[in-house]
Write a protein that binds this DNA or RNA. Sequence first.
DNA 1: CGACTAGTTGAGCCGATTCAACCCCAGTGG
DNA 2: CCACTGGGGTTGAATCGGCTCAACTAGTCG
Lengths: 244, 244
Amino acid sequence: MTMNIKCCECPLRQLGAFSKNTPEEIDFIQHFKLAESTHSAGKTIIYESKHNKELATILSGWAFRYRSLPNGKRQILNFLLPGDFIGLQEQMAVVSPHGVEAITDVTLCIFKRDELWKLYREHPALGYDITWIAAHEEHLVDENLLSVGQRPAKERIAMLLLNLYKRANSLGLVENDGLVFPITQQHIADALGLSLVHTNKTLRALQKIGLYQTSRGRLKLINPKALEQMASYYEIPLRDRPLI
Amino acid sequence: MTMNIKCCECPLRQLGAFSKNTPEEIDFIQHFKLAESTHSAGKTIIYESKHNKELATILSGWAFRYRSLPNGKRQILNFLLPGDFIGLQEQMAVVSPHGVEAITDVTLCIFKRDELWKLYREHPALGYDITWIAAHEEHLVDENLLSVGQRPAKERIAMLLLNLYKRANSLGLVENDGLVFPITQQHIADALGLSLVHTNKTLRALQKIGLYQTSRGRLKLINPKALEQMASYYEIPLRDRPLI
DNA sequence: CGACTAGTTGAGCCGATTCAACCCCAGTGG
DNA sequence: CCACTGGGGTTGAATCGGCTCAACTAGTCG
């Protein structure tokens, strides 16, 4: 449990992807921050149905939220990237309604959960931001539900690749040769409600017609336009994205 | 546009399903309320991709949120019952990311959207409540995504019937002989990512083994335990539910 | 050098889809 | 008053997308 990064020097804030806060707000967030913690790849960060009231923002790394069934099947609800907030649903339930697992090594900014109420009281604008964050995460789940419920496998996968690519891009994670892509085929299968085998075959088919390529754990979209067309991609314009 | 019901006499607040507010908060909500509006069954309340910043709570009636694809397929994201709030996602996007359609005749309490910010500033506890509401709606979508992604048709339908039944029950809509059930098989199909024909056959199969029955638009669960077992139903205990 | 993880590919099967009738009932209008 | 119409529900038949089973490869790590 260390505290290496000051909020006013937060690398995510430099990015331009997030809305600006006043110095007072940054001060408060700094005070709100309890510590940093790291979780290594593959480890569970929050357990399903366990008492857990952790509040945190992902500072670096990839993770996902999931729910699982007694028979072992698991649904990935959405992927979590830097800047994503963890712990809102935990606030409104007695136990955590979902699990969170690290894909890569993950660094979290942990907040003082007892002071969430103070945040709403003293900085209503930040309270508003937290609502924004909750509504935005719901939007991501909505999008995925639309895919899983109504799109065939090819389109689901095209959609997922596009969404992850665009999110990573807005965080400056995309370079010329694509981005570091730590998602396994099993993750994709679990997120899209497909079997691993079918996910593999569909991915290969998309690769074969030259829509994307992977090498050494990097993903590059060769023909994003074709992917967008395949998935009937439609980007919903959002307002300024807050960061807590 | 009338204003028949005072917030302090709101029939939903009498129910015991919602947390109590202070008199000052009720006063504010009363002031926050602009009017009531009614939408008749089958009409669109909010159009997809249209500019719309309406804030409202459902006072009576059933509705649903949905997204649709260019090919005409439609995914119902979640059903909306009295007490559910409409308009949070609209706040964080430029256009509405989803549509809302009335199933029965619906009465809404419309709020002054320009005063949402005032709500956060003057009544941070209500701001906190709105976050709760957003997180809770996300929870509903999570649950449905788990079903659509991982459960076979029979279990999906069992789950949906249980969830709607329990929600209606907490709102006092269930009587001895069941509840008024305005959902068509097409709604169920669209919510669960199933075809209409398969939904019908699965529904009939569940009815045949005596899990539920319908007559004159009323639904009665004959054997809720068996439904729960079939769906691996697990109720996540929630904290006090707010009402704006 | 096993042992384990991630990915790949073929074969056969099954749950869910599409197509196509058909029924019932509540409006509606001549 | 009754024929017509349209929405919701029901059912069988044929098809197919995606599933399971199974076997195999390549890379990595203690």
